[in-house]
Design a protein around this nucleic acid. Structure first.
Length: 578
RNA sequence: GCGCCGGUGGUCUAGUGGUAGGACAUGAGCUUCCCAAGCUCAUAGCCCGGGUUCAAUUCCCGGCCGGCGCACCA
């Protein structure tokens, strides 16, 4: 780990932001516990997200269980698609995707859907060798590795359940209920902040790749034909865009406004462009250094199979770019899958302005003919006729029509099918919404903010470390100190502390050691303001308020202090204007 | 999952085949009093298991954890 990451994890552990889980038992890779500072910081980031992406957008929020039954992930594709087949080289120990080796060496196109045994046999048949060292891999076991954590629901063997690998499925699966709640009116957005779990092969880099992590996801359901985002609200926001084309041809990040990006077609999807415009000021609001930030478009080969386009918000920490958010278009992939697997209706009914008349082929089979003719199969023949009429009305042009039921052809005189063209009135249609998905990794944002807010400077010749966290997300808003803990100063300071807490402020009280040391303690956890009770306080009921970033102090009357500090926290008042 | 390197108080580290020393931090006290001052005292450590040995924190093996590289990251 390079310097930035090292000093960050040192500070995080020492000051209670985050640390390895269950270190007493040797720890466990890929799991981190947020300490007192970190948990509050994370809460504040989530609150800021909720404010911007739920409350102010008028979306709704849900909270679904972390464990879902197997069927959900069969439908979503995670059960198969989240499964990697690995084969290890006996010589050099390199680990390879077995299905990829087979696809490269044979004309098999979709080895991923085959059984591991079958893939192993193909490796032997085609004498596939280790790409790293050339040793034959025949006979080496092909092992499946699914990135989902499995569990059982209920006693005994129970039924299979999985910890969700993304919070999104908890939204998609409930779509019928949520659409009903939204009174079947598109567009609407459903958000969820919650934990997701992936049994990563190799967790790395502190909070960046972990096995249990918090996502803040928004699924915005839109009518693909009609709905347009309110681009004008964000048209002037500047986006640092690193397009797929730029990545492939040695280009660089381009600064374009949302309006320009759409105009030039750099961001093809207006909804994605809209959310990039919403998100950009938000990152700045929570303390991301926008000079170490970019939007990177997925390369064609990187795209998920359901995604037409995807942009990641990336932040630079330690020389690496961290994927902090994915802005994806998922089209109707998930809703279609759940509709297919569950048999439920994952669409909304869109009423036309005016009902329209349409001609529709219908059949009304004469069962007194079909019954005697086909016996028990008569019902199925009738169904087959109905679906044929829908698909291919021209089939009924002749004297007879033939349908297949269970591989048996049945021929029916057209006049017995009751075929006709009927004029019906349609008052609307079923629309399957498309989904725009901004998906935020909360832990990665917390990590970024800590890294980007880490500052050092000199105060009276002494080096100082402080976290320049925005007051809104700082875990503690104000430190309260008596200049000395005697002559009644401590009691006065306790009064101030109580008053500030009662006003809903996050307060840290500290009376240990010298005043300078207490300032430095609060600096290191990013507390933006400190209030000190001194001898003047006893006479004139004022205190000093000290600003973290400038270390400047101002005298402020105790009366009105809670309101002043709240205004400072909420950004309604700047310290310089005190 | 593989390879290389590593693991000593809360943190950073010194050192050793005979179980450890410092700095910072923390707590108590004195002192000082608006930016990590000083003094005294105190708390606190050799990742886990097995082996070799009279004796293992030290050497060997395995595990766990971490860093880096490879692979992986719908």
């Amino acid at each position: 780990m390079t310097e930035e990451g090292a000093r960050l994890s040192e500070l995080a552990k020492r000051r209670g932001f985050f640390f390895r889980t269950a270190a007493a038992y040797g720890g466990v890779a890929g799991f981190y516990t947020y300490g007192p500072q970190g948990a509050t910081l994370k809460d504040n980031v989530e609150a800021a997200w909720r404010d911007r992406f739920v409350t102010r957008e008028g979306h709704m929020e849900v909270s679904s269980p972390d464990v879902m039954p197997e069927a959900v992930f069969e439908a979503s594709g995670h059960l198969d698609g989240f499964d990697d087949m690995l084969v290890d080289c006996p010589e050099c120990g390199a680990s390879h995707r077995a299905d990829h080796l087979v696809e490269d060496a044979t004309d098999v196109a979709d080895a991923e859907s085959m059984s591991p045994q079958a893939v192993g046999e193909l490796i032997a048949e085609h004498d596939i060798a280790c790409p790293a060292c050339g040793v034959a891999l025949a006979g080496e076991p092909v092992e499946e590795f699914n990135l989902m954590f499995e569990t059982t629901i209920g006693p005994g063997s129970g039924s299979a359940g999985y910890l969700r690998p993304e919070t999104a499925q908890g939204i998609f699966v409930e779509f019928p209920q949520l659409a009903e709640y939204a009174r079947n009116q598109l567009p609407f957005g459903v958000a969820q902040i919650g934990d997701a779990y992936r049994n990563e092969i190799s967790p790395r880099k502190g909070l960046v790749r972990v096995r249990a992590f918090t996502q803040a996801e928004l699924e915005h359901f839109v009518d693909p034909e009609e709905d347009e985002p309110p681009i004008e609200r964000v048209a002037d926001v500047t986006l640092p865009l690193y397009s797929a084309q730029a990545q492939q041809h040695g280009g660089e990040v381009r600064e374009l406004t949302v309006g320009e990006a759409i105009e030039e077609g750099v961001v093809a999807n207006d909804w994605i462009a809209y959310y990039l415009g919403v998100a950009t000021p938000w990152y700045e609001r929570i303390g991301v250094d926008m000079d170490r930030f970019r939007y990177r478009q997925h390369l064609p080969g990187e795209l998920a199979h359901y995604a037409a386009d995807c942009w990641d918000a990336e932040t630079e920490v330690d020389g690496d770019w961290i994927e902090a958010t994915g802005f994806a278009t998922r089209a109707d992939y998930d809703l279609a899958k759940h509709a297919e697997h569950s048999g439920e209706d994952y669409s909304v009914f869109k009423q036309y302005d005016e009902p329209i008349a349409v001609e529709r082929p219908t059949v009304d089979p004469d069962m007194s003919v079909l019954g005697p003719e086909f016996g028990g199969a008569a019902g199925e023949v009738a169904d087959a006729l109905r679906s044929l009429a829908e698909r291919d009305p021209d089939a009924f042009d002749g004297q007879e029509v033939t349908v297949e039921v269970d591989d048996t052809a049945h021929t029916v005189p057209v006049e017995a099918t009751g075929f006709g063209i009927e004029e019906v009135t349609e008052s609307g249609e079923h629309v399957r919404p498309h989904v725009i998905e901004p998906s935020f990794g909360v832990g990665r944002l917390v990590y970024t903010v800590l890294a980007h807010c880490y500052e050092t400077d000199l105060v009276d010749g002494d080096e100082r470390t402080y976290l320049a966290l925005p007051p809104e997300i700082a875990p503690t808003t104000v430190g309260v100190f008596p200049l000395m803990d005697k002559d009644g100063l401590g009691e006065r300071a306790r009064d101030v502390e109580r008053e500030l807490r009662a006003a809903g402020l996050a307060v840290a009280y500290d009376d240990s050691g010298a005043i300078g040391r207490r300032y430095r303690r609060q600096d290191e956890v990013g507390t933006p303001f400190c209030v000190t009770v001194d001898y003047d306080t006893l006479d004139d009921h004022t205190v000093t308020v000290r600003d973290r970033d400038s270390t400047d102090q101002k005298r402020v009357a105790i009366e009105g202090l809670p309101g002043t500090l709240r205004s400072l926290r909420d950004g309604d008042l700047a310290f310089a204007d005190l």
